[in-house]
């Protein structure tokens, strides 16, 4: 029995949108090294659309796969839609995660929320 679904393994082995956006409009980092998973999301936003998104993750297989899937789900989408992304949507898109790994999908949602919050606060300045 495999630990993870094929989808999870695919995103873990070939993560999409890995890296950094130097002139990002919003950056969010969540998690901590104490609990074992840290995600950092970089957003490039133009005309209310998520033009580009990149991530860096320190974490387990499902943390890396969740970050990767989350970036795919919001890339090219209106900011409003990105804001609605739930951890369940990330987990479902990965054909499910083991129960004790659901926190990884929560982190992915929170990382995007944090990056969008950063974007909003920068916009206000």
């Amino acid at each position: 029995m495999a630990l993870y679904s094929e989808k999870v393994m695919d995103h873990f082995r070939n993560p999409r949108n890995v890296g950094v956006i130097e002139d990002a409009d919003g950056v969010g980092e969540v998690g901590n090294a104490k609990c074992g998973d840290i995600m950092k999301m970089y957003l490039k936003i133009e005309d209310g659309i998520v033009k580009d998104v990149k991530f860096e993750t320190f974490g387990c297989g499902s943390a890396i796969a969740s970050s990767s899937m989350a970036t795919e789900l919001i890339k090219g989408k209106p900011v409003e839609e990105a804001r609605q992304l739930t951890n369940q949507a990330v987990a479902e898109a990965l054909d499910g995660l083991p129960d004790y790994k659901m926190h990884c999908s929560v982190l992915a949602q929170e990382a995007i929320e944090a990056a969008l919050k950063d974007y909003e606060s920068k916009k206000e300045e």
Binding site: F12, G36, F58, G59, C60, G61, A63
Partner: peptide, 28 residues
């Protein structure tokens, strides 16, 4: 780096090993 992702990638290279990371134990 985190141990579980290390193990999974070593598994892909045909090496069976183990880690003391939280993610491999199912606890935090």
């Amino acid at each position: 780096i985190e141990g579980e992702s290390l193990l999974l990638l070593l598994d892909d290279k045909g090496i069976a090993a183990s880690s003391g990371s939280a993610c491999t134990s199912g606890s935090l």
